[in-house]
Simulated scan of single mutants.
Amino acid sequence: MPLYVCKLADGEQPLFLRLLAGPSVDTLSFVLREQPSGEVMWDAFSIPELHNFLRILDREEKEQVQLLISRYASYKQKLEELLRATGHPG
């Protein structure tokens, strides 16, 4: 499948184009990417979009913290059980 890279014009509607292409992802698919430099052009986003990014990042951060807390608690419990099983005080 040929790959065509282009920047969408302000008036283009990628979701509508995807809908017109039908269900097959072989017909048409989109990949969003950063600038070639790897930098995000933050000034291209509206204030509500930026606030939404912050909400998403906050939620993801909370999820990661909870995951780490859960893993730590699990490892701690297993270590304490192992220490008790080998006769070492916990």
Rank of each mutant, 00 (worst) to 15 (best):
P2I: 02
L3A: 13
Y4C: 10
C6W: 15
L8D: 01
A9W: 12
A9G: 09
D10H: 13
E12R: 07
L15I: 02
L15V: 06
F16P: 00
F16C: 02
R18K: 14
R18P: 01
L19P: 00
L20T: 00
P23R: 14
V25G: 13
T27F: 13
T27P: 02
T27I: 11
L28G: 05
F30S: 03
L32S: 05
R33M: 13
Q35G: 00
Q35P: 00
S37N: 04
E39S: 04
M41G: 04
W42L: 14
D43A: 07
S46Y: 03
S46C: 05
L50R: 11
L50G: 03
N52G: 01
F53E: 02
F53D: 03
L54Q: 09
L54E: 09
L57W: 03
R59P: 01
R59S: 12
E60P: 00
E61L: 15
K62W: 10
K62E: 13
Q64V: 07
V65T: 05
I69E: 13
S70T: 08
S70C: 10
R71G: 07
A73P: 02
Q77H: 14
K78F: 08
L79C: 01
E80Y: 15
E81Q: 15
R84G: 04
R84H: 11
R84F: 05
T86W: 09
G87D: 03
H88A: 08
G90Q: 06
